[in-house]
Simulated assay, not measured.
Amino acid sequence: MYRHEKTFYNKTGIFLRVKANDPDLKKKVSEANAYKVNYVGMEFSLDGFAVEADGDLASAVKQIRSISKLPLIIIGTDPVVLEAALSTITDEQTLIYAADASNSEALAGIAKKYKASLVCKAETLEALADLTQKLQAVGVDDLVLDLGGKNMAEWLTLATQTRRLAIKNNYRPLGFPTIFFAGQVGPEKEAVYAAQAISKYTGFLVLDTFAPEMIYALLVLRENIYTDPQKPIQVQPGIYEINSPKPESPVLITTNFSITYFSVANEVESSGLPAWLVVTDAEGMSVLTAWAAGKFDAERIAKAIKGFDVANKVSRKRIVLPGHVAVLSGELEEELSGWEIRVGPREAVDLPAFMKQALN
């Protein structure tokens, strides 16, 4: 599969592992549940929690449910403990971790009773395939695979093998999502392991560490992998107010490519300088790309200025073009009679200095 031709679907779910006997369980869950971050107009957050049964699992599940409605993975080996926890959340689908050769029959019965999904694990891929077939034979079809692996290279080999067997050879016993625990080698390598897991087929990623800086990077990585490569991330064309602009504030022009928009908007906003930002419809392309493709020209800019009724919002008709398309200034003067056309800097980072020195 070529990244520039195809789109990946079914994003990796990112879960945070907590422990049932943790005295700070509620605090940790509350902090993680509240975590939200904005990236080029999209809001990211964690996808759920994985709670480990090293204490009263049922009580821990109730505590989590009093704070968060995010999906749960319950981790344990005792069927009685797992069933007690599941009985507190009968109206939702939960993922049980994990069935092996020793407990598969008991956990299969619980999974069927509570309509839960079930993780399978075994020492080898052959044994894992036998286990999934055994579980399917008793009516448990919603399965997830724990491939094991002692290190990153071994896990990657197993992940690649199962994916190829399932897709290329149509080997259905291994054609299920996988789960990976990124903290298995300690916090110092957790981000590296997690990044590889997202990049290489993991369906469920479980983190041990709630570090906003790490989670943000992983969420952005996931979004970049699962974004349609032929459809850039866009913002809505329109006129945006930055720092409460006044009628005499300048009008800045850019395209609706999200990274371009947020680069410009963030630089101006952080400077504290007021401005009107007109975002033209360039089909999600950056300034130079759109100009080269004929999607960002004087006619389109003039159409946006008129369509968004900018003239009635300002007292001083002054437009700042991106420096990369200075060539459009003459044509734009013809399209917008009575407007002063200024050529701004090439890079967004230079906008605040330009606005202070050239527009006052």
Rank of each mutant, 00 (worst) to 15 (best):
244 S>R: 12
62 K>M: 05
128 L>F: 01
45 S>E: 07
101 A>K: 13
76 G>A: 06
200 K>D: 10
202 T>A: 12
132 T>I: 12
136 Q>M: 12
124 T>I: 06
348 A>C: 06
240 Y>C: 01
333 E>Q: 10
126 E>R: 10
304 A>M: 07
44 F>H: 05
299 E>S: 08
61 V>Q: 03
258 S>P: 03
1 M>Y: 09
275 A>L: 03
227 T>W: 03
127 A>P: 03
298 A>C: 07
300 R>H: 10
28 K>C: 08
313 K>C: 13
20 A>V: 01
114 Y>Q: 00
88 T>K: 15
226 Y>D: 01
310 V>E: 06
10 N>F: 02
108 A>N: 13
186 G>T: 00
348 A>Y: 01
238 G>C: 02
212 P>D: 01
19 K>I: 05
276 W>D: 14
194 A>R: 04
208 D>W: 05
139 G>F: 07
26 K>R: 11
15 F>H: 09
173 P>G: 00
208 D>Y: 04
290 A>I: 13
133 Q>E: 15
318 R>A: 05
266 N>M: 10
323 G>P: 09
252 L>W: 11
149 G>E: 00
154 E>T: 14
165 L>A: 11
159 A>V: 02
317 K>G: 13
150 K>D: 10
171 Y>M: 04
35 Y>F: 09
11 K>L: 03
180 F>S: 14
58 A>D: 00
221 L>A: 12
16 L>A: 07
259 I>D: 09
243 N>F: 01
334 E>F: 11
133 Q>A: 15
304 A>L: 08
287 V>Y: 07
180 F>D: 10
197 A>W: 02
55 G>V: 08
156 L>Y: 13
263 S>C: 05
124 T>G: 13
242 I>A: 02
36 K>L: 08
296 F>W: 00
141 D>L: 14
358 A>R: 12
348 A>F: 12
